[in-house]
Nucleic acid binder design. Structure first.
Length: 263
RNA sequence: GCUGGAGUCGUCUAGUGGCAAUGACAAGAGACUGUAAAUCUCUCGCGCUUCGCGCUUCGUUGGUUCGAGUCCAACCUCCAGCA
């Protein structure tokens, strides 16, 4: 994180890939889109970057509200990848993600654009950044996490604890203001509770609410604390990664734009 | 005002003579290279020289007991029924 030199310094002339990470609700998606737009302006092109989501939930089709997935209107014309890849009852693992993301990175670079990886699934990000090798046999020695591939730049979004908590609660209110019941019903009908995708996330809570076991207000709070638990786990995961440049939202945007305008 | 019931860790809760005291949630820390928004571990009265020791706790104040969250009395608060 300290070598903020030239974005093209490594990896034979190819621009370094931007990785935006942070806990859920930290604003990764929005930042990625903003950066992509600003970059396009700076470079005088229509599209300068494309976003690859590294989110283990957004890959599922139909789970839109519950995953706070970026919707087409939010994307503002910036191509997004890694969203709606499989059905909720399909099996999708890190390996699948790694393969998929590598393909997309290559394609985006071929178009002369910057790949921006945005996501909170630490394992997915690490599989890419640290070049994890997966074998057909189960266990395999870990590669040293300090040996990051040189062609990535990691920016982490940091927030004061209470502020992030407040954001999560606020987001939960917004979520429940949408037709989450309908989405939940559709998912249950189509895939049942057995699918891995339905077992977590907001759906069990919504279901409890629909059955009248908890009030709407309780559901909203429950969901927010679930998110907070997740955020803490994500933070624990990222904490050990010493290559992350932790910045607050506004500072992160400035830093990134500065970093990529040194061409 | 009378009669029942209840007051235990941030919250809910177990506990009728051996208890620093059960469980859940919240909170905190952490692990995690094949479903990761998953899965799993630890801490959680206070203080220590922490596989142990010390101190202070179960509404309040006294009492009975070797010993009380547990029994008794009074008082305070809350809920319910009667006035």
């Amino acid at each position: 994180m300290e070598k903020a030199n030239n974005a093209k310094s490594h990896n034979n002339g190819q621009e370094q890939i931007l990785v935006i990470i942070g806990p859920t609700g930290s604003g990764k998606t929005g930042l990625a889109i903003e950066v992509a737009r600003e970059l396009a302006k700076l470079r005088g092109v229509n599209i300068a970057a494309e976003v690859i989501s590294a989110d283990s939930r957004a890959i599922y089709k139909g789970m839109d509200i519950g995953t706070a997935k970026p919707m087409p209107d939010e994307m503002q014309g910036i191509p997004h990848w890694g969203i709606d890849l499989v059905e909720p009852n399909d099996r999708f693992t890190v390996v699948d993600f790694q393969k998929y993301a590598r393909e997309k990175i290559a394609e985006i670079q071929k178009r002369g654009r910057l790949p921006i990886i945005a996501g909170g699934t630490g394992l997915y990000v690490d599989a890419l950044v640290y070049d994890y090798h997966f074998t057909n046999d189960v266990k395999k020695t870990c590669s040293d996490r300090s040996e990051m591939c040189a062609n990535f730049v990691l920016v982490g979004l940091k927030w004061p604890r209470d502020v992030l908590k407040a954001r999560l609660l606020e987001r939960s209110y917004k979520l429940f203001a949408q037709d989450i019941e309908d989405e939940c019903l559709r998912m249950v009908e189509q895939y049942g509770w057995d699918s891995q995708a339905m077992k977590s996330d907001i759906y069990p809570i919504v279901w409890e609410m629909m059955r009248g076991n908890i009030s709407r207000e309780e559901a909203i709070r429950l969901n927010a604390t679930d998110d907070w638990h997740l955020a803490k786990r994500q933070l624990t995961w990222f904490k050990r990664n010493k290559n992350i440049n932790w910045l607050e939202l506004a500072a992160a945007k400035d830093w990134i734009l500065k970093y990529y305008s040194k061409n």
